[in-house]
Amino acid sequence: MENQEKIIETEENIAENEEEVEVLTVEMERLQDDIDQRFELLKDRASSYQKNGGASTSYIEVVLGSESFGDFVTRVVTISRIAQADDEFIKQLELNQKKLENVQKEHEDIIQELHDQVTELEVLHADIKEQREETTQIRDDLKENEEKQEALIAELIKEEQDLALKEEDIRERIEAEVQRQNAEKEAQAEAEKAAVIQEKPVNQSKENNNNTNNTNNSTNNNNSSTANTSSNSSNSETLTSRGPSNSKSSDSEVQSWKTFSATAYTASCAGCSGITSTGIDLNRNPNSKVIAVDPSVIPLGSRVEVKGYGTFLAADTGGAINGNKIDIYMSNRGDALSFGSRSVELRVLN
């Protein structure tokens, strides 16, 4: 903008100087013509003087040729005027010559100024051209950056949408796992309740047998052999009925804590498919509480408590999982690596 204003100002100055140059040129031509004319007149007079023997001789002849005194005075006055006119003519010629020199000097100065202004104008045009090229380059760069930003925004929007879908999928998996665990808890509660209901008839039968023995003992004191036989029979029946109940109660009891060697793995470990040997898809259910076990030590499907880590489902196996060794599933690879190998306390719940 500043350069553009300078260009306009310079062009206006150039136009003014060009007009002044034209005026000076006309003035120079006029002065030169006047000087040339006066110079030609002087040449003619000089030539005449040379032919006639000089100006003084002509003046004397004119004066001596007068016919009377009055004619003499008139001729002297006329000669004086002619001489004065010649002096003025020469002075004017000198003045015109001086003025021509001044005009020529001014003309040269203006021409030089015009040259400088034209040079400055060319520099300004070059600067404007360079600025325009820079502006064009900046505009192209801005356009390119704008396209990159639009592409980045589109990519971020897509990533946000993908994350929203993944978040929704994870939320659904968590809800499904919570529902599954709640269902397991309800099933366990129902099983425990059923076990309690099954134990009640056994205990009732035991009490009835004891009451029968007491009655037989009190009513048959005189018949000891019969009472003993009846008592032995009752005791035998009681032992028979208690035997299965004790065995079932023993099976339902929680096992004691045992020491196991534990490691950790992920669904994407080397050689892993992400699906356990019992069919659980760990990729779709990353929050599953699953461990890999040796089925000969811990049956598959068992609920196992690992002290300090919570309750897990024995739902997987592994080629390196033998004896008292377990492999705990973790969804995060960093957590699995940090876990390493350590000893844990474990007990089978059911």
Rank of each mutant, 00 (worst) to 15 (best):
E12F: 10
E16D: 10
N13C: 03
E27I: 13
E67I: 14
L24Q: 08
A15W: 04
I14L: 09
K51D: 09
E12L: 11
R30K: 07
I35R: 02
S66N: 03
E16W: 08
L41Q: 06
L64H: 07
V21R: 00
T57G: 00
E40D: 14
E29W: 06
E11T: 15
D34G: 06
D44A: 12
R45Y: 06
E40I: 11
T25I: 03
I14N: 00
E27S: 08
E22N: 13
E61S: 07
R45K: 14
V26P: 00
Y59R: 05
L31N: 08
T25A: 00
V63G: 00
E20L: 14
A15F: 08
V26K: 04
N52G: 03
V23T: 12
L41E: 03
M28H: 05
R30T: 14
G53K: 05
E16Y: 06
E16N: 04
E16R: 10
S58M: 14
G53W: 02
A46K: 12
E20W: 05
K43Y: 10
I35D: 01
E40H: 13
N13T: 09
V21K: 01
Y59M: 07
G54W: 03
S56L: 12
K43G: 11
Q37T: 13
T57W: 00
A55S: 03
V21T: 13
Q37N: 10
G65E: 06
A55N: 05
A15D: 05
Q32K: 07
D34E: 14
S56W: 04
K51I: 15
A15Q: 07
Q50K: 10
V26E: 05
E61Q: 15
L41C: 04
L42I: 14
N13A: 07
Y49Q: 02
A15N: 09
S66L: 11
G53A: 01
L42A: 13
L64E: 13
Q37S: 02
E11P: 05
E22Y: 06
N17S: 09
E19Q: 13
E29L: 04
G54M: 03
V63S: 04
E20V: 14
V62P: 05
G53S: 02
D33G: 05
I60T: 11
